[in-house]
Amino acid sequence: MPAAEGLYAAFGELVAGGDGSILCFDFQGDDPSVMLRDFLTELLILFERDQRCLVAVVDAAFTESRLVVTVNTAPVDLERSAFHREVKAITYHELSIRTVPGGYEATFIVDI
């Protein structure tokens, strides 16, 4: 969720409104940071194409080679949201995930 919030902060101040819907994403690979990037890319497309955003992570399971995330999404309230800028992509530059006390810390850089 914090990674998604980081991405959404680049867009502006998004406010969700309307009916939620559940989506499930399943990523496989050999680099957890790339799988996180792929997940954030799905959120980017969801916002840009469907004007929807993530409101809650329902379930997340990950290993070194797989990331499965179930999320609740809702339409972005275009009237109440404030948009700062578009995001072109989540880049591979300095992409990383580190273990920190109580969880993980991820670095990703977006191209705007």
């Binding site: 497309i45 700062h84 578009e86």
Partner: peptide, 17 residues
């Protein structure tokens, strides 16, 4: 398909940044 759908209504738009 994703590239096409991202572009379908964006031709003739300025964008941001």
């Amino acid at each position: 398909d994703r590239a096409l759908s991202r572009g379908s209504d964006q031709c003739g738009t300025l964008g941001s940044g």
